[in-house]
Amino acid sequence: MSIKEVMRRFRSERLAFVSFIFLLIISIVAIFAPLITPYNPNAQNLSNILANPSFSHWMGTDNLGRDIFSRVIMGTRTAIQASLFAIIIPLSIGVPIGIIAGYLGGIIDDIFMRIVDAIIAIPGILLALGITAALGISLWNAMIAIGIVAIPQFARLARGQTLQVRTEPYVESAKISGAGPIWTMFKHIIPNISPPVLVQASVNISFAVLAETSLSFLGMGAQSPQISWGSMIQQAYSMINLNPWLIVYPGVATALTVMAGNFVGDGLRVAIDPKLKKL
């Protein structure tokens, strides 16, 4: 099935398409964040702390008088960066590994599958935590860790699809008529694994945002003055007796982004395989 066909059907999945637009907007906001924020997100104003939402501060201010709205806007950058890491790293490492293992088959494939299955069994957050701790605590390392954690899933997916495509009659006949492995890979395998990889990528946006906010919440991601929704929630939590509303804005931003990623994934899945629709 062609990507074009999938996209056409995806557009008719309303919730997924709206979510896709939402993610697109978030990404644009992330790129132009410094131009959008009404205030310097780190500028303190101790004469106006914990202010309620007003015309000048749409979401109020935090315990240091910083504009919450500006901070939420800047937080999109961290979230989108984490998502990019969680897509690009596994795409450039996991997918090639999976294709090679699937294409070669045999003992290499067996060993590879064992390793991948074992690593997938480790809860993602634990693995990310361990890698971050080893690399050293920083937002950059947290994002690398998130990317590494996502590798096995992509590898497994790419392998499965490759195995399936490899035995298709048209690929077999291409091989017989002298097509080399590189040709086969680009002509047949890559186009065929693209749709499911796309699904996994959008689901990974959710995973990345959740993992990044969790790590930042624990103090193992964004370090001040870097801004993450996770660390905003963590700071807000210490003020929770004074103003419980502070946890709402970054929390809603996180939840919406995660949800959008999941919806896009669901919509793509249905667009690729319409039989799933009823579920």
Partner: peptide, 10 residues
């Protein structure tokens, strides 16, 4: 889609 730490706080 809800982060568990956020659910906890709510």
């Amino acid at each position: 889609s809800l982060p568990n730490f956020w659910v906890a706080m709510l």
